[in-house]
């Protein structure tokens, strides 16, 4: 039986889709079978970020409505044999997702895949609650910025109350993925530090993804950042996060923490 991960955040634009694609590709490179599922019905983008936008024939709403079988809707990644995408519908809205339909799709995916990664839409409405409903593990994507932290706190509250696990009295496993982190700005005191966010949200840290041009570059060409440039700092961060998800206990680092000559001269006290 596969594990179901929800990638969620509350706030939009913090990196849910980027992270879903990157973690999916990172896990698939460990030779595990991965399905990434786009729950953002009406505003799908996972297909675009993964470079499969021209191969979408059927989507999750078709599967739920019985217009297509799951294997017909799943798109196999051209670069990784073990990575699959279940796209969202672009022409419907979130009400097209039904509780029973989603349950059926997830149950079937769990049979065939080691990992089912649910890319949640932003917000706290139906799409987001359905994406988290059947999760075993939650990855809470947060930027070191007040509105993102506040929304993450709200989402953590929902994970602890609105999921099947929570309703069954079980503990939902939650992890923080801090994205767009800039350690230089944090050291200067102009950005919340990792420890600040951890203290406020008090969930364990899965990884720190540094702010990087490589993320945009990867999405420009339609490749998860863990496929586009495996040695880039964000890719390294996602590989580490994937290893932690798979159960390895490795210390969290901030990949690619490099200082220019100016930074070296002024050390940690610069400005």
């Amino acid at each position: 039986m596969g594990k179901v991960i929800v990638v969620t955040s509350g706030k939009g634009g913090v990196g849910k889709t980027t992270s879903s694609a990157a973690l999916g590709a990172a896990l698939a490179q460990r030779n595990e079978k991965v399905a990434v599922v786009d729950f953002d019905v009406g505003l799908r983008n996972l297909d675009l970020v993964m470079g499969a936008e021209r191969r979408v024939v059927y989507d999750i709403v078709n599967v739920i409505n019985g217009d297509a079988k799951l294997p017909q809707a799943l798109i196999r990644d051209k670069r990784l044999d073990t990575l699959f995408l279940l796209p969202a519908s672009q022409t419907r809205d979130k009400d097209a997702l039904t509780e029973e339909g989603v349950e059926r799709v997830i149950a079937e995916l769990k049979k065939y895949f080691d990992w089912v990664i649910c890319d949640s839409p932003a917000g706290i409405e139906k799409g987001a609650t359905l994406a988290m409903r059947h999760a075993d593990v939650a990855v809470v994507v947060t930027n070191p910025e007040v509105s993102s932290v506040r929304d993450s706190d709200r989402i953590i509250g929902m994970l602890d109350s609105k999921t099947l696990k929570a309703e069954n009295g079980e503990r939902m496993e939650k992890h923080l993925l801090l994205t767009r982190y800039d350690s230089n700005r944090a050291e200067r005191g102009d950005m919340l530090k990792v420890d600040d966010v951890l203290e406020i949200l008090s969930i364990p840290l899965l990884g720190i993804v540094p702010e990087s041009m490589d993320v945009l570059k990867a999405s420009n060409v339609g490749a998860p950042v863990t496929l586009a440039d495996t040695r880039s700092a964000p890719a390294q961060a996602y590989f580490e996060a994937a290893r932690r998800l798979a159960g390895e206990a490795i210390p969290v680092t901030i990949p690619g923490e490099k200082r220019g000559i100016f930074g070296k001269l002024f050390g940690r006290k610069a400005a």
Binding site: E145, G189, I200
Partner: peptide
């Protein structure tokens, strides 16, 4: 003056 401590404090009170 540094802005991150303000962010941290405001968040703690709000949350």
């Amino acid at each position: 003056s540094r802005s991150a401590p303000a962010a941290r404090e405001r968040l703690q009170v709000l949350l």
